[in-house]
Amino acid sequence: MGTGYATIMYDSEAVVSEGIGDFAACRYDGVEIGLGKAEAVGEAKLSELLEEYDLDLYCVMAGWLNTEEDLQAAVDGAALAGSLGADFLGILPPPRGVVDDETFADWLDRIGAAAAEAGVTPIVHHHFGAHVEQPEEIRRWLDEGPDNLELLFDTAHYYAYGDITEGIERFADDIAYVHLKDIDPPAEFQTHVENLTAGKKDYDSIVNYIWAFTDLGKGVIDFGEVSATLDAVGYEGHQTIEIENQKDHPLVHAKENIDHLRSVTER
């Protein structure tokens, strides 16, 4: 098992000039990068940087699936992920209400086929306010999706819909990759969750949920317990720390987050 860091806090230019070097300096093992950034950096340059800093590429995360154009970008992105040696192609489901179940099922099948051809594993990211959000929806789409579809389990995105420990235990056989992410719920957080689950186009609820994400150890999630539970269910895959909302001094946050994780685990 390795621990990676996501490039959310770095734009494509900063990924090259700072990000990859920052992750190596903090002694991360791997990297997750968005498909758009990977394309902007370019396959040759990104491969060169990963080799230079001895970092693995865990996941290339495709963008939100809102349209057929987004779908085609994800399908095309599978080949780039495979060429870069990534383990996974991440799938962000459509926001709730954008497409019907039949369309989403077709989209999953098309991404799954492209991923299989490229030699990468497609993983679905359950996400607040999305077509795959509730634990029952996670179970449904893992069962009804293509045979090679597996789960990206995200601690902060699961928090609002069920006990994280129970979620890890419930989906133990399906979890291929883990996002470690903390959350500090604001007042009336559950109301915001209910609005998003109902499919309301509620800007206030979206903002309050997004801004609740915080650095590891600054929120309510016990990552020592998360780690112990992953160990208990026999999880041996990679985990990536995903931080948002902290774009000032990204190196500081990269270091503080890995330090916190190491302080509460045996890794």
Rank of each mutant, 00 (worst) to 15 (best):
E32T: 09
V99W: 01
G224A: 00
I258V: 10
D248C: 00
A232H: 08
K45L: 11
A74I: 09
P93F: 02
P93Q: 05
V31M: 00
K247H: 15
A44K: 13
V16G: 00
R262Q: 11
D87H: 10
T121E: 12
D173R: 11
V75G: 06
K218T: 14
I175C: 00
V15F: 03
P186D: 10
D143Q: 13
I206W: 15
R267V: 13
I164W: 11
E144F: 08
P135N: 07
L142K: 11
G4D: 04
A118N: 09
E225M: 12
T3L: 15
H127S: 14
G145H: 11
E48F: 00
E194H: 14
Y10F: 14
H157D: 12
S263G: 05
T3Q: 06
I111D: 03
F23L: 15
L261E: 03
P186V: 11
Q239E: 14
Y235N: 03
T197S: 12
D87M: 08
P185E: 06
W211D: 15
E242Y: 04
V124H: 13
A118E: 10
I138K: 10
K247F: 12
T103Q: 11
L142M: 10
A116D: 14
I91A: 00
T155D: 08
I206G: 12
Y209M: 12
D56M: 10
G219Y: 06
A228K: 13
Y53C: 01
S47K: 12
L180N: 03
T240A: 14
G2F: 04
A81C: 02
E188H: 07
